[in-house]
Nucleic acid binder design. Structure first.
Length: 81
DNA sequence: ATTGAGCGC
C-alpha cells in the first residue's frame, strides 16, 4: 500500500521519512519528492508499506503528527499522475 | 534558512 505524506518540513529527507514510518511497521520504500530543477524539497513524499494493516494504522497514527515542527498529513496515495 | 492545501519522471 502506498501512502502520500504531505506538509513535510523542507529539511525532512527520504531516510528520515522511512525512519518515522518504520515505527508503525515494515517500510518497503520511502521518498521525499524534490523539485527537479532546484533540487529543493517539495514538502511531500511517498511511503510504501507491504502490510496493509500496518499501513492503515500508520495513516491513523501518523496523520497530524508533528515532525520537525510541522504537522504532517498522511493519506493513501492516488495513482501516480 | 526557506514553508504550502500539495500525489514521485
Amino acid at each position: 500500500m502506498k501512502l502520500f505524506v504531505a506538509r513535510l518540513d523542507y529539511g525532512v529527507t527520504s531516510d528520515a521519512l522511512r525512519t518515522v514510518f518504520e515505527d508503525f511497521g515494515t517500510v518497503n520504500a520511502a521518498n521525499v519528492i524534490n523539485d527537479r530543477d532546484t533540487g529543493q524539497s517539495r514538502g511531500f513524499g511517498f511511503v510504501e508499506m507491504p502490510n496493509q494493516e500496518e499501513a492503515m494504522s500508520a495513516i491513523h497514527e501518523a496523520d497530524g503528527m508533528e515532525l520537525r515542527g510541522r504537522n504532517i498529513v498522511v493519506k493513501e496515495a492516488e495513482d501516480r499522475r
